[in-house]
Design a protein around this nucleic acid. Structure first.
Lengths: 126, 126
DNA sequence: ACAATACATAAGCCATCACTTATATTTAAT
DNA sequence: ATTAAATATAAGTGATGGCTTATGTATTGT
C-alpha cells in the first residue's frame, strides 16, 4: 500500500522543552545508565514519586524515553532514536557556520542516521 | 559498568532553556541567515522590540549569540561555538545509550523468550 | 540645541510549570 | 479476601517566564 504523507509531528520543540528542566534532564541522564522503574528513580532524587512520574510523562511525550510494564512496576528506558530531531535541528543549521565547528561535523558523521529532515519552522518570520 | 564521575560542567543548562522557547529559537534561526540588528529582527516577528531584546539577552547569556555596536544600532550574530556544549552533551550520552542498545541486542540474541531480568541494581544514587 | 531613532531596562500581568498532597488503579503478597 | 506496593492522575499552590507598556540611555540627524 502506498504510504501517504509521513506527516509526523517531529517536534524538536517538545525535546528542547523536555530537556530544559534540570530535574528532567537528570532523570534522562540517569536512564542512560540503564533502565529503571519509577520507584528506582524516585529513590535517586529528592522529589516525590508523582513528580518523577510527571517528568517521565513529559520525556515520553517528547519521544526521549519508552516504557514497559513489569508486573506492578513500570520500567522506563531511553529511546535511542529520541534525540534524532534534536540532532537534525543542529545538522540543518550547521551549514551556516560549520566551518568553525569541526567537532560538530565529527559528531554528525558518526551518527547512524539517514538524511536528516529540515526541522520545522512552526514559528515563521513574516 | 560506567560510573561516570561528574567532571563535566553543566553549562548546557542555559542553552536548553534558551532554545526551549519557540520565539527565541526562531530568532536564533533567523540569525543563522546573517547578522541583524534588533530592529531588523523586530520587523520579522510579531512581538514587540523589548520582547526581542529580552530574547536576545537570554541567547547571549547562553553563549549562542554575540553582539557588536554599530552606531546607535546593535548587531547580533550567531556565536558559532555556542552550540558546542549542546553537541558535547549529546555526544556524551549518546555513548551511553548506544552501549545499552548493544547490550540489549546481545541480551535478546542470547535469550529467546522468557524471564526479563532485574533492572541494574548497581546504579547509585547521587 | 532639539528631535528622532535604536536599544535596553523596569514594572506589571497572565499563563504555564514544577512541585506538593490526596486519591484511584492495578498487581503482588499474605 | 485483605493488605501492601507501585504507579498514574487530580487538584491546588507558589514560582517562573514571556509578553506588554512605559521609560531611560545613547547615538544620529537637522
Amino acid at each position: 500500500m502506498p504510504t501517504a504523507a509521513r506527516k509526523r509531528p517531529r517536534n524538536e520543540d517538545r525535546i528542547f522543552t523536555a530537556l530544559a528542566d534540570p530535574s528532567r534532564r537528570a532523570i534522562f541522564e540517569s536512564l542512560t545508565r540503564g533502565e529503571a522503574a519509577v520507584n528506582d528513580l524516585t529513590s535517586r532524587f529528592q522529589i516525590s514519586q508523582p513528580a518523577v512520574s510527571q517528568h517521565l510523562a513529559v520525556l515520553k511525550d517528547a519521544g526521549l524515553v519508552d516504557r514497559r510494564k513489569d508486573g506492578r512496576r513500570v520500567i522506563y528506558r531511553v529511546e535511542p532514536r529520541g534525540l534524532k530531531p534534536l540532532i537534525d535541528w543542529i545538522a540543518y543549521y550547521r551549514a551556516f557556520w560549520t566551518e568553525h565547528v569541526q567537532r560538530l561535523e565529527d559528531l554528525l558523521d558518526s551518527m547512524p542516521d539517514d538524511a536528516p529532515d529540515a526541522p520545522d519552522a512552526s514559528t515563521r518570520p513574516r
